[in-house]
Design a protein around this nucleic acid. Structure first.
Length: 887
DNA sequence: CAAAACACGTA
DNA sequence: CGTACGTGTTTTGG
């Protein structure tokens, strides 16, 4: 016996062997619904929830029941002798999701590795195989355990045969049915159960029964008449409506009974004695579990068969290559010899480089930062020599700060990991090492002052990064790899410079405004306390609920998890139906304190250079957008006149002349026009007419100049809502109109712009097929939930999938424009620089005398970032502060 | 003390 | 029952 093979030995107390036969299909299907798919998806998007759930249950069963003989039966297809007989059989069942079907072959691979026989037969259902084996087994003196989620198997139960049937939820709990338990639960002997089922019918199999007859009536009749035949014979004796129903449906009952009888004489290649449990192939199990990313299941499998888990590869003992400490002199030679990819890890301190680790294959070197090292490194770093990083941006920033440019950025494992799985937060290199190498990155225990375990050194981190990159490169599809190389990596360099530049913000303006708002909030609070004659914390939804719904006895609003909502929309509704001075004051208080809070957080973020340096998280969204943190500069208020005073505090910096803002107008609608090819919408953008006026004219059948502002508001909401998968319900709510009117509006809209609806439908359908959406440039976003049996999950996924290519393409376009602008400004030797990106807007700081050149670059690059069937319209503004520049 | 819930700002 | 984000406050739960 080879070292990796373990005997599956079974010890039972009784001399009688135990045969366990399992309906693989029905139990895996239950597991599929019971386990959330998001927790069971591998890195290449293979769903494993059904496999995991089934194996988990099986392992528990083997452990508990200790069968000496074991087999799993599967259906081959929907088609069977029953569908031949009665084509409507199971016809109402919705198609099995492809995500489930795809798991069956893999599950069978697992079973093969575990040396468990899998039985199937063309035209025969799994339950017939179970029935046959159960009959043969009990005849041959086995104790038989039938495991199935199909109620028809109840008929198999007798003194030798016990059924294990899953409880309503999931597969973790199995209920044991022996003849006594069946009698208790159903009121009849097991062999009579099919008679009951024939009378009652089986909705899930599309077998209608006798109307108005449920379990209770069926049991009563059978007890009364003894057998089904007798009952049907003497159906005339049954009185009333049900008696008539029975007589009218006798043929249905006979058919049902015929179909639900399980075959006990199927010809099978293996009989019970052939199913003796055999040694499992430890290596094969390990391999397939690794592929399915099952970690906890492996030891459980071995435990269940009474063996210790075989030695795991001790990841911690994977030998790390030695690291050579280099001095500046040795570096040039080393770099010259290192052809091809070199992985780099720069540790930083105080925003400057500290140590540098380099990995070229297993050749690892490290250096401490010094002017000599910098001099020896600079040319290579700026050159096209390919370099691989994990999360390059922070390292690039430190290098830029030290006065070095980074060229040849060939790969970033952080970005690649995100592009492959944008919804999974593989934040750190350690996460990726675990996921893609199956190893553990040595990390120092941060809780220990003097760590017992040494963390990986910079060169070793670079070594891991290079190996993760190799693995990722085999996983990342070509189109996604292009997004990485042609969009994300150039964007990374640009973002590094934007973050370093920061934006000048006036503390004076902010603190003055903050004080003003603070005083106002105080006054409002006082006033509102006077009205309700007590003091509450206006920031506490819980206390507000007391005041609003108990003290003031206002009508209860939208429910939340913990009570009733007090959000602004709800308060505005309340104010309309039940005007109360407290409501108005509360809204004003919210507004003032919210603004003040934003101002305060901005103020504390101003650094010594009088500028705010946000951090753009390039992997921060699932669609391809950037996000901004510490502080978030992408949600600075703009909607009200007063809130725009905050934007006035964002000012042109010293030695610069003015701010330039540039934004895409209606970029998402333009992308919709392009993707859908809708001629009306394309014409709208080419006509030069105001978009919503044009659309309004078409929808309402009037001349553009006759479009009223109410009409314009409606089509505008409709147009924007489209991009988000808005429903008639949502539209009616937003516009405060009747649902019927909203429905009508949507009808009219699609009557004129039908290609838009066609595109949106086709796009979601295509995503359902392939499992992901794709932007114009090839960025992908997986959507496993599109085939979820859970309606809420599925519909959420549908809306997100509808939006993803549109929002994502817009993000791609903006990124392309952004790095090209950045690169043009540098190439032309201009000092002007991009400071902020707010999804469809850029803020640029323009140096004296550079306005014309900068504006030209910005307009050209934004307008020319993509060739669509409609023009990309760019609005440019100029001013000394952000608010002024926006006009 | 950390996490959840709520509310609200932007595109 | 409208997509994508981040942040602050209060409340909750261990």
């Amino acid at each position: 016996m080879s070292a990796g093979v373990v005997r599956l030995e079974v010890v039972t107390d009784s001399a009688k062997p135990t045969l366990m036969v399992v309906d693989g299909h029905s139990l895996a299907y239950r597991a599929f619904f019971a386990l959330p798919v998001e927790n069971f998806t591998t890195k290449d998007n293979q769903h494993t929830n059904a496999i995991y759930g089934f194996l988990s249950m099986l392992v528990n069963l083997i452990k508990a029941e200790q069968p000496t003989h074991l087999a799993i039966a599967f259906d081959t297809s929907r088609h069977s002798f029953r569908t031949d007989e009665y084509p409507e059989y199971k016809a109402t069942r919705s198609e099995t999701p492809s995500e489930f079907r795809g798991q069956i072959p893999l599950l069978q691979d697992c079973l093969a590795a575990m040396s468990i026989p899998v039985l199937t037969k063309e035209g025969i259902e799994a339950d017939d195989i179970l029935a046959t084996l159960a009959a043969q087994g009990s005849a041959q003196g086995f104790d038989v355990l039938v495991v199935s989620g199909d109620r028809d198997t109840i008929q198999l139960v007798n003194d030798q045969v016990t059924l294990l049937y899953p409880n309503v939820q999931g597969v973790s709990q199995l209920k044991r049915y022996d003849p006594v338990a069946v009698q208790e639960r159903y009121g009849v002997r097991p062999e009579q159960y099919p008679d009951i089922a024939a009378l009652v019918g089986e909705t899930s199999d599309n077998l209608p029964g006798v109307p108005k007859v449920g379990e209770k009536t069926a049991v009563k009749w059978l007890t009364q008449f003894g057998t089904l035949d007798e009952l049907l014979e003497r159906s005339g004796e049954i009185k009333g409506v049900v008696g008539g129903n029975l007589r009218d449906h006798i043929e249905d009952v006979r058919r049902n009974r015929k179909l639900n009888r399980l075959l006990q004489d199927v010809e099978l290649p293996l009989g019970p004695t052939d199913l003796e449990t055999r040694p499992i192939d430890a290596q094969a199990v390990r391999d397939i579990f690794a592929r399915l990313e099952f970690r906890t299941l492996l030891p459980r499998v071995f435990e269940a068969v009474g063996e210790d888990a075989p030695e795991e590869e001790h990841v911690a003992t994977v030998a790390l290559p030695d690291v050579a400490e280099l001095a500046a002199e040795g570096l040039a030679t080393w770099l010259k010899a290192a052809t091809g990819d070199v992985a780099v890890e720069v540790t930083t301190a105080g925003g400057l480089p500290q140590r540098v680790g380099l990995a070229h294959g297993d050749d690892l070197v490290e250096l401490s930062w010094s002017p000599q090292v910098q001099a020896a490194l600079a040319d290579w770093l700026a050159s096209d020599a390919p370099k691989i990083f994990h999360d390059a941006k922070s390292q690039v920033k430190a290098l830029h700060t030290a006065g070095m440019r980074v060229g040849g950025l060939a790969y970033d494992t952080n970005l690649a990991g995100w592009l492959l799985r944008p919804s999974y937060p593989d934040k750190t290199l350690a996460d990726l090492v675990d996921r893609y190498l199956g190893e553990k990155l040595p990390e120092a225990d941060p809780t220990q002052l003097v760590p017992e375990t040494e963390g990986a050194s910079p060169a070793q981190l670079a070594w891991f990064t290079a190996r993760v990159a190799t693995s990722l490169r085999t996983d990342v599809p070509e189109s996604v790899d292009r997004v990485l190389r042609e969009i994300e990596l150039p964007t990374l360099i640009t973002l590094a410079d934007m973050e370093l530049a920061g934006v000048a913000v006036s503390h004076e303006i902010l603190s003055g405004f903050s004080q003003e708002l603070g005083e106002r909030a105080g006054r409002i609070a006082e006033e509102s306390f006077a009205i309700i004659e007590r003091e509450v914390n206006l920031g506490s939804p819980k206390q507000l609920q007391e005041v609003l719904f108990e003290q003031l006895e206002l009508p209860k609003t939208r429910k939340t998890k913990t009570g009733y909502s007090t959000d602004a929309a709800v308060l505005a509704d309340l104010q309309e139906s039940h005007p109360h001075p407290f409501l108005d004051l509360l809204l004003q208080h919210r507004e003032a304190t919210k603004l003040r809070q934003i101002i305060e957080s901005l103020d504390t973020a101003i650094r010594a250079d009088h500028r705010i340096h946000t951090t753009y998280v390039q992997t921060g969204s699932q669609t391809g957008r950037l996000s901004s943190t510490d502080p978030n500069l992408q949600n600075i208020p703009v909607r009200t006149e007063e809130s725009r005073r905050i934007r006035s505090a964002f000012q042109v910096g010293e030695r610069y002349e003015t701010l330039l803002t540039a934004d895409y107008s209606q970029i998402e609608m333009r992308i919709m026009a392009h993707l859908s090819g809708d001629e009306g919408l394309i014409e709208a953008f080419n006509s030069g007419e105001d978009l919503h006026r044009f659309v309004g004219a078409r929808v309402f059948g009037v001349e553009p100049e006759e479009v009223s502002s109410a009409m314009r508001t409606k089509v505008k909401a409709m147009s924007y809502g489209l991009v988000y998968g808005l429903s008639a319900f949502g539209l009616s709510k937003q516009l405060r109109i009747e649902q019927s009117e909203a429905k009508q509006l949507m009808m009219e809209y699609f009557a004129r712009f039908g290609a838009v609806r066609d595109y949106l439908r086709a796009s979601v359908l295509a995503a359902k097929e392939v499992g992901y959406t794709e932007t114009i440039f090839g960025r992908r976003r997986p959507f496993p939930d599109l085939v979820s049996p859970n309606r809420v999950l599925r519909e959420n996924a549908e809306r997100a999938a509808l939006n993803a290519p549109i929002q994502g393409s817009a993000a791609d376009i903006m990124k392309i424009a952004l790095f090209r602008i950045h690169s043009d400004l540098l190439d032309e030797g201009l000092a002007s620089r991009v400071l902020l990106q707010i999804h469809d807007e850029l803020v640029v700081e323009v140096a004296p005398g550079e306005w014309d050149a900068t504006e030209r670059i910005v307009r050209d690059r934004m307008g020319g970032a993509a060739e669509l069937s409609v023009p990309l319209d760019v609005q440019v503004g100029r001013g000394g502060d952000w608010n002024e520049a926006a006009h």
